[in-house]
Amino acid sequence: MAAFFCVYTALLEKFLIFDYFLTRQHTIWMNGMYTDDQLIELIRKDGDALERALRHLNGDKAFRERVLQHVVRYGGSREDAEEIYNSSLVTLVSGIRQQHYAQKGSLHAYWFGICKGLCSNHFRSKGFKQLVPTEDEHALDTPNWETPDRLLLKEEVKTILLDVLSQLSEKCRELLLLWSKSYSMSEIAEALNYADEDSAKNRRRNCHLSLMKYLNEHPMIKQELKDLWNWKNTSTN
C-alpha cells in the first residue's frame, strides 16, 4: 500500500509538475531563464545547447500568440501560423549563426521581423505549390516555393545534404560547420585541437576546396542544391 502511494505520487508529480515546467506551461517563469546573450551563445553551439535554446524559444506562448495574430491579420490559418513560426525559428538560428543579427534591438524584435518577412513571402507565394527551378544559374535567389525550410525534413533533401557532406572526413565536416557558424579560426583551432590558427586556416581551405570540387564533379547534386538554396532564400529574403 505504501509502495503504491509512493509510486502514484511520483508518477503524478512527474506528469503534473515536472512536465509542466519542462513544456513551458509557465512561460513567465521559464522565459526569464536566459538573456538574449545567453541564447545567442547557446544557438551558436549544437547538440544540447541548441536544444535548450530551442526549447526556451519554442515554449514562448506569448510570442507564438503574437505570430498567430499577425498571420490571422493576413487572412492565414493556425496551420499557416505554425509553419511560419517554425520557419522563423530555423531562420532565427541561421541568422544568429551567420551573424546577420546585429544585436541592436532585442532578440525577440529581430525574431518577429523574421516572422513578418516570412508571413509576407508566404502569402505572396501562396499560389506556387510546385517546385519551379530557376533557369538562371547565377541568380540563386529566384522566388519559387511556399514553405521552404519544411523541405529540409524531406528524405530526398536530407539525402542531397548527406551526399554532399559525407564526401568530407568527419573532422573536415566538423571544421566547415563550425566555420559556417561564424566561429573564428582560433576558436576552431581550439575546438578541434589544431596546433594554431594557421593550421586551422589551411585545413579549412583544403576542406572547402574538397567540397567545391565534389560539387563541380556532380552537376546533378549541384543543381539540386542550388534549387534548395533558392527555396530557402525565397522565404527569408
Binding site: 530551442l54 544559374e137 529540409l152 567545391m212 563541380n216
Partner: peptide
Amino acid sequence: NLYRLSLAALELQQDATVRKTLEKIQ
C-alpha cells in the same frame, strides 16, 4: 557559384539540424 553553393550546403545542413531538433521538441 561553387564557392557559394558549398556555403549553402553547410548552411542548409545546419538548418536541417535545427528543424530536426525543433520537430523533436514539438
